[in-house]
């Protein structure tokens, strides 16, 4: 079970200290929930897109946004209907469908979903699993909790990879006279059988995973030594300082208002 989000590279963000990145991740993700006008959230989103462009490529920013596109569409359609205070903008036969406040809230929600997604995606794409584990432990999270968090996040690409393999396997079982083509409609029809196989596989992998962890000593109660080390020194301190400054700066719009 070795799915992984990490994309090896040598960008400045790859080389940024894992602990400093964790502070930046939490602070920046929280920023998208601050009670601020959408223009601030949009500025933050543009800033993250620029970071993508300078580190792992602009094309990478499209990947997570495409994956949450159905959610974004639902948010865009439903949020105005649940926020109808303020000046009406669209009415049909006396029924208000959209207001200024509703639209503003819709834009805020879309920016929030996109911003948080891009923030987390960039973090996991540029930080390897061992660094994440060591960083969490450095902040005081016990090893088992850190391992749970990292395995949980690692399970997502594993799940996706498993889905692809099962989907391939199922596409080979089309009967005579039927198409094994993987067009959109076929994909939708094949979704539930594929998901069933994937869920069965995932549930069946729980016991072997716990067995594998136990025979490697997890849960033995002893403190662990560490193969990986996180660097210290001036570089670490300056990057930590920079992260704290950025997170503090993100609070300024609230204080200013």
């Amino acid at each position: 079970m070795t799915g992984d989000f990490f994309l090896p590279g040598n960008s400045a963000f790859h080389r940024f200290d894992g602990r400093a990145k964790l502070i930046l991740l939490v602070g920046s993700a929280a920023f998208f929930f601050y009670p601020l006008p959408p223009v601030f959230l949009a500025a933050a989103l543009v800033a993250w897109v620029l970071v993508f462009a300078l580190t792992i490529g602009l094309k990478e920013a499209g990947t997570p946004l495409r994956s949450i596109l159905p959610v974004l569409i639902l948010v865009a359609l439903l949020t105005p209907l649940f926020n109808r205070q303020g000046t009406p903008l669209i009415s049909v036969k006396g029924m208000v469908l959209a207001t200024t406040a509703g639209l503003e809230e819709t834009v805020r929600m879309l920016l929030r979903f996109s911003g948080v997604t891009l923030t987390f995606y960039l973090y996991f794409r540029t930080t390897d699993l061992q660094t994440i584990l060591l960083s969490l432990r450095w902040f005081g999270l016990p090893f088992r909790s850190s391992l749970v968090v990292t395995l949980a996040f690692r399970y997502i690409p594993h799940f996706a990879d498993l889905y692809r393999q099962v989907s391939d396997a199922h596409s080979l079982r089309a009967g005579e006279g039927t198409s094994s083509s993987r067009g959109f409609l076929k994909g939708v029809k094949a979704f539930f059988p594929t998901l069933t196989s994937v869920l069965i596989q995932s549930v069946k992998s729980i016991d072997p995973l716990s067995m594998a962890l136990e025979i490697r000593g997890v849960g033995g109660g002893k403190a662990r030594t560490s193969y990986g080390v996180l660097p210290g020194g001036a570089r670490f301190f300056s990057q930590m300082f920079l992260s704290c400054i950025i997170v503090a700066a993100e609070l300024l719009p609230i204080l200013w208002r």
Binding site: T2, D128, Q130, L151, Y227
Partner: peptide, 11 residues
């Protein structure tokens, strides 16, 4: 595949 835990061979 049931037994491999980490995402790098040395780890």
């Amino acid at each position: 595949d049931e037994q491999i835990i980490m995402t790098r061979c040395d780890w």
